[in-house]
Design a binder for these strands. Structure first.
Lengths: 335, 335
DNA sequence: CAGGAAAATGTCACCGGTTACATATCGCGA
DNA sequence: TCGCGATATGTAACCGGTGACATTTTCCTG
């Protein structure tokens, strides 16, 4: 492996001069500059970033902990974060946890060991100790989409789940529905709690009673949505409208619906959090709440780089707007 | 920042002993082991992975260059690769190139600088010089899905695009279609060439003439699919069936179809490469060729770790099977 | 042409683990 | 008790840039 010393020797200069030529900063005479560049060329020298990181105390790495990078929402967020990172000369280390808190802890520990310069967290549970260590080590951290309750001082980038859910459910209620159900997310997940709260609020405001059996906590993945929807549809009396926690669960829910020959929207109205390119083309087109996933990621990146550049970001929550797409999956009940 | 020397001092041992306790290998007396562990605990010591990487000459990083991590196929591949990486104690550095060859070159250069232990390439163009440098530096490399023509010796993990396309198109022909169109991908992309070749082969075998105007080269993104499909649909005589290069283009194509009130499958049959969770629920359900994206990523990982472990992998191409899902987007022509 | 500041360049300690090698310690048989 | 191999432990060079500081060169002023 050819090192900076080899280049220095070949060019007949000191390592410092080589570094100066390559990294800029202090000027170097044209003559030497050229000699160095030629040596670099001839030796096919590639500077060792690991050594540079060690010396500088900066890795140029951003850690991103997600539950599953294959989830479209997550992937969009990742992309937004990455673009922001690239803008600052950074790269992104992505790790999926599958909502496994042990795995989460491992990932955070590994981020700490690698001394990533900042961490974005888009995952599930508390990960308390892991995050605590990041904080202790002064690694800028931001939560994305959701944040454990006990970590309020760390910034969060999110959408207003509660209001968005409330509005969507109100839309159902305004259509005339009085018996609503929800395919919710895992109880421990803050966004699940918020969307459920929005659902309940809207119902309560309208004076509607929510039957407990109509609210199913789906574990994540399409399978969870399927199971939950099955339970709802197999009730002796079905609700006339269902609100889904996210698009993945909604897809599972659609499977259950199809399996039972339930007609949407005639027999059942459906609204879901999270939009998808294909929802407009589903039979019927799915009414959905769109989250600006890309922007969420980008915003998280901005926050992190602000911190890296020395700004104080504690307590800075960023709330991005949602968009409600009314399509064809809802109708008045009893049609 | 507390270092191994601090721990050594606190425990009253040498740094070597600390390293031995933490990394295993040579045994350490129980007494000292305990003192070290306590010191680690008390000082909240986190080993510096950068220093370790420099010293060991291994980073435990896998570089993954993709065109866009937000693409569902890509994200699945990434996930497969990541799971394999985790199994080996590795993490994945993901970078998107947006098919920009300059960006690709930058990413590869940065992978080289970071001395990632291996690289998986799922991107577009030649990236010739960048890849050449990886090879020169002995960094194990694998292509995923597609490989530039001049780099045959580097292993590739893929599906058999050509046959899959041929079979799908034959399915259309067997339905009675004689005037077929294709929304193809960018000409430079090997998979685009292969799928197009499969399309042409099937047509040729059946003695069908493909009208040049019916084959549109869509640049990528839904927008590209939309534009291409518009051009096809605006022909004086429309083909009766269209084969789409991938699911993203297909979504764009669906937009064009909807805009023009073309009925699928009555007026137009549609088949696309790449499946999606939602295709079964689209109106009509989309007939599609599924690629085992996750497995492709996992397989790529296996190949890389085999190389890292010293195996010779040059020339080892892995071809994974596709699955053809017949749904509702195709019918006999003229119905 | 001396003198001195500015600009260019060189030297080298340092970042923090790792590991080859040297040294110390222990156990056991003679 | 001595001696030797086996085992445990310590020492320090090394990985490859970086950048503070020292030194040299350049160039301008008087």
């Amino acid at each position: 492996m050819v090192s900076i010393r080899d280049v220095a020797k070949a060019a007949g200069v000191s390592t410092a001069t080589v570094a100066r030529v390559l990294n800029g900063g202090t000027p170097v005479s044209p003559d030497r500059t050229e000699r160095v560049l030629r040596a670099v060329q001839e030796l096919d020298y590639v500077s060792n970033g690991v050594a540079a990181s060690l010396s500088r105390g900066r890795t140029g790495l951003l850690g991103l902990l997600v539950s599953d990078i294959a989830n479209p929402f997550t992937a969009q967020v990742a992309r937004g974060l990455e673009d922001e990172a690239v803008r600052h000369g950074y790269q992104v280390l992505i790790a999926s946890s599958d909502f496994d808190s042990e795995r989460e802890a491992q990932v955070l520990a590994s981020f700490a060991r690698r001394t990533v310069d900042a961490v974005a967290l888009l995952s599930s549970s508390g990960v308390g100790e892991g995050v605590a260590r990041l904080i202790r080590n002064g690694i800028p951290t931001v939560f994305v989409d959701r944040r454990p309750p006990d970590l309020g001082e760390i910034p969060l980038v999110r959408t207003d789940s509660l209001s968005a859910a409330r509005e969507a459910v109100r839309y159902l209620i305004d259509l005339g529905h009085t018996d609503l159900g929800m395919i919710s997310g895992p109880a421990g997940m803050p966004t699940a709690a918020q969307r459920l709260a929005g659902f309940r609020e809207a119902c309560a405001t309208a004076g509607l009673v929510v039957r407990p059996k109509c609210v199913r906590e789906g574990f994540l993945g399409t399978q969870g949505g399927y199971t939950a929807m099955c339970e709802v549809l197999d009730l002796p009396v079905r609700p006339t409208a269902v609100f889904s926690f996210n698009n993945v669960l909604a897809i599972g829910a659609l499977e259950a619906v199809r399996e039972r020959d339930v007609r949407i929207p005639a027999d059942l109205s459906l609204v879901t959090f999270d939009d998808t390119d294909l929802f407009p083309f589903v039979d019927p087109p799915i009414t959905a709440i769109e989250q600006p996933a890309y922007d969420i990621g980008a915003e998280a990146g901005k926050l992190l780089f602000a911190r890296i550049d020395g700004a104080e970001t504690a307590g800075t929550d960023v709330v991005l707007p949602t968009r409600f797409h009314v399509r064809g999956s809802c109708d008045r009940p009893g049609r």
